[in-house]
Design a protein around this nucleic acid. Structure first.
Lengths: 342, 342
DNA sequence: GTGAAAGCGCTAACAT
DNA sequence: ATGTTAGCGCTTTCAC
């Protein structure tokens, strides 16, 4: 029993004028006489009139709504990005529709479709881990709807992107581990099709190379969530005896590994140094505090939205696609040893 | 240069039939001949036709979209609730629009308005901390749009609600503190206008009373974020000497307090026991692991969406408003001492 | 079995 | 200064 919300037609009938007069009066069109305008505005106010955004979008062919697709809202990094996006969006009169892919390709495809069905003006997306087919994005691209990827981007499509310098971050933090004395560093990495995973792995390898440390294939594992760490506990504990450092692809994985190792009697960082990626809030709440790389989630979100807005508002046909790279900042805390002199 | 997406009219023109025929064919209306139907469907498939959700909503006067207003997406409890909501919503063909109030009344009002403008079929809301005026919700209520409050509810309006038994949870965990030997328990509470804050405070007081422990007014502070804990560090440290337990209104506040106390040389739980509320993921990642109360966020979200759906779909005029109460479960971990015998 | 017409709420070009 | 008309994309009643 949803009550009928007052429409412009209702006002027109009630006041004995035409709908167009009401429409014009409400937006201060100069043609409308002072008297009529006041009368209409007063009435609209009284009945609490609000324009129907759906009708407006249909008419104008512009929804002033943008769609966001992220893997999972629960992660601090993603929710920070969303906040950054929203703050810019709101300030420009845009709304956002947020969808979670739950790291699942099928759901991601559904999300994109639903967003298109709702005629969003643009799309902001971060790929799911399992996305190995890009046709759903390709068709968005072909249809000419502006789209900006952030963090986990799609190299296969030439769009604007906002990313972290994953390679450099990984190289930086791995160097720090080496400089503080580590030589056998376990890397807990993510899915190989994920660009960021590749970059972080390459950065890790580059750092080893920089320091003439021989990489050890057995020390590169795919293991990127606390759940997986726990599932592979035995393997990890076995490896632990032969390693002196861990570089995990994200903080929660690093923390989970640390918990297990400490329970097994290893001292952090004395026996094993640990480093993460992302600077999740847990990183400085745990003891010892986690050495990691700070990612500017909020700012990345702002930047992504700004890139999209430039295509939406200025419409100046920007032909080249732009890439904004954020440098992650090394946060040396307590899970790694102080730098030894070189 | 957003490309024009194919409409039913486009298909009609291309195929030399009327729009109504296309519409009917696409939804398998029995009147349409096999041949025409196949022809239309094949063409629609080819041009990747998708119905315009905006036009549909306008026509049907139903958007199959529900609006969510939460304080901040970054908190695990809220994002879990959102996941619960979404999973149920999707399974029933509903979309969600998520808005953050950022604990700000003005933004909450704007959010509600924007959601109504978009003609959401229903609203799911958790109040901001600063909300002391309920007119925006009152007008939703009067307009007959179904609305369900969760967690931080609005007592002033008679709607469906999904809540945690905050009183009982607080009583339970405070009792646990007392049973394990605490007598001077500091309560770090939240804003007084927040119902959940009142309930948790009352539960705390009830437990003291149950155990004939005299409440001490100086040990009841309003301090509900890590930032505030740090801002009031000196006060906290000064109090620390005279207390033997802390019950914080949420886990992040409890953890922040623990960090400060440990840095000051207090041993947890030997000198001071600490308990939180909510069972945030950090609770079992920190060392010592935090004793707290588990809140069923995901299930609460599911329940809230189900209550809303009953009003949306079944439409059976449910007159009485329903209240679902979730019992929080005590998670005794390492920041409190083992129970002493009674 | 298919089409024409009206209407959801709104705007804008075109009357008057 | 105001009204009429058409149309955004879609559905549905009423014709034939």
């Amino acid at each position: 029993m949803k009550a009928h919300l007052t429409s412009i037609n209702d006002i027109a009938k009630a006041l004995g004028v035409s709908a167009s007069t009401v429409s014009r009066a409400l937006k201060d069109h100069p043609d409308i006489s002072e008297a009529t305008r006041e009368k209409i505005k007063a009435f609209a106010e009284k009945v609490n009139y609000r324009p129907n955004a759906l009708a407006l979008s249909l008419k104008k062919q512009v929804s002033r709504t943008i769609g966001i697709v992220v893997p999972e809202i629960v992660h601090h990094f993603f929710s920070s990005i969303i906040s950054g996006i929203e703050d810019i969006a709101y300030s420009k009169g845009y709304r956002v529709m947020i969808c979670q892919s739950n790291e699942d390709l099928a759901r991601e495809q559904m999300n994109v479709q639903a967003l298109l069905d709702h005629r969003v003006d643009g799309l902001l997306v971060c790929l799911s881990k399992s996305t190995n087919d890009f046709n759903h994005f390709l068709s968005v691209y072909r249809s000419g709807i502006p789209m900006v990827f952030f963090d986990r981007v799609c190299k296969e499509i030439d769009t604007d992107r906002v990313i972290t310098d994953d390679f450099n971050g990984a190289r930086l933090i791995t160097s720090h581990l080496i400089n503080s004395g580590c030589r056998r560093i376990l890397h807990l990495g993510t899915h190989p099709q994920l660009h960021i995973g590749q970059e972080r792995l390459q950065g890790y390898l580059q750092a080893l190379n920089d320091h003439k440390v021989t990489p050890i294939p057995e020390l590169i594992l795919r293991c990127d969530t606390p759940a997986e760490v726990h599932a592979r506990k035995d393997e990890l504990v076995k490896l632990a005896k032969s390693i002196d450092g861990i570089f995990a692809v994200n903080d929660s994985t690093a923390v989970a590994a640390m918990q297990i190792l400490r329970n097994e009697g290893f001292s952090i960082p004395r026996d094993i140094s640990i480093a993460g990626f992302g600077d999740d809030p847990i990183a400085d709440m745990i003891d010892p505090q986690l050495t990691t790389l700070e990612q500017q989630g909020y700012q990345m979100g702002q930047e992504a939205m700004n890139l999209l807005l430039e295509r939406l508002i200025d419409k100046q046909d920007i032909t080249e696609s732009r890439v904004k790279i954020f440098q992650p900042e090394l946060k040396i805390r307590k899970t790694t040893r102080a730098m030894a002199m070189k």
